[in-house]
Design a protein around this nucleic acid. Structure first.
Lengths: 184, 184
DNA sequence: CCGCAGACTAGACAGTGTCTAGTATCTAGT
DNA sequence: ACTAGATACTAGACACTGTCTAGTCTGCGG
């Protein structure tokens, strides 16, 4: 599909190298052909961001599902999967969280919402098992989302290395789970 | 200066609207003139990012300095200043933490390092006063940096509102920094 | 006084996104 | 079975863009 090709360019050569005309050339169609599918370049980017949110949600859900018995390990697996996604698709993650001048489209908004719902699901599984204190799960999830997104940003912008990012995940989860409610 | 003008465009119309030729036009010079100052468009963007890091570091330092007696309040002030910077200059923050294909330039790297040093300074002031547990201040600072950056990303990408961001700052400081060593 | 480096002009080039008009093809609906 | 319409596409044009080049002007240190 056209989006797959666009995603590959995004991954390998960054967003600046993503050109509708080049995409059309490589697909063997005329330069105006993509317009039937995406009215704009930004419509293409929106579609990519939307797919990115769906894929990211899938990946962290699967990662967490592989650790059904240990809440802390499940959280760590999900967070780690998030950062690994970021390392694999840095330009795509940038796109997903880009600060555009106009508000994000409804489709992107929904996809982002689904990612957050997935995270909430992972979090509340632990709360249900009593591994975390009750309280507002939504807020905690938001905090986790922000932290993991921030760690990803630091890694993809080359401020810290991937191992440092993993260490940060450890720190974050430790303080999440064992934070105000328990001593060590 | 040329950079001031570029920053204004970045703030008001986003990165896609930032064109060397338009900058030259508005400055009343020929389209090739900016080349004397910046070899590339990306060199211009690098210079903007560098300035952004310096300004952000200044702002959080000043914010923290306004609360010299209360560690928690100083931390909150610094984090809040960070997010406010993000809201004021969303495109610039994107630029500063963009995942470019090639490694960031030395100048940008240094400026980012200075921001982190500033954060470390704010953090260690509290550690010195015994308001936080000792341990690895660098790691905690990194965690704070990541969290605040993540909160900023969520706010600027319109996933959450500014008040929600403020609430997250509260949560983060309570859980991450005052968490393990204190009860509530 | 000379030379030279730095800022600038002006023109060219390839490339881009976007718009338009026209064509082919496939798909209902009657 | 025929028609109307939607959909994917072509081809050309337009206004832009970044980048490169050669040449000019100007101010300053030797």
């Amino acid at each position: 599909m056209l989006l797959d090709q666009a995603e590959a360019v995004l991954r390998e050569r960054g967003i600046d190298a993503l050109s509708l005309r080049e995409l059309a050339r490589e697909a063997g169609v005329s330069h105006g052909a993509p317009r039937s599918h995406f009215i704009d370049r930004s419509a293409l980017l929106d579609a990519l961001a939307e797919r990115g949110f769906v894929r990211l949600a899938d990946e962290i859900r699967e990662a967490a599902a592989r650790e059904p018995d240990d809440y802390a390990r499940a959280l760590h697996a999900a967070a780690s999967a998030y950062v690994r996604f970021a390392v694999r698709e840095p330009a795509l993650l940038d796109l997903m969280f880009a600060a555009k001048v106009d508000a994000p489209s409804q489709a992107v908004r929904n996809a982002a919402e689904r990612l957050f719902d997935t995270m909430t699901g992972i979090m509340s599984a632990g709360v249900g098992a009593g591994a975390d204190d009750a309280g507002d799960v939504g807020r905690l999830t938001l905090l986790l989302a922000a932290t993991v997104q921030g760690i990803s940003a630091l890694v993809t912008s080359r401020r810290i290395t991937m191992p440092q990012g993993e260490a940060l995940i450890d720190d974050a989860i430790t303080r999440f789970l064992l934070g105000p409610s328990t001593r060590r």
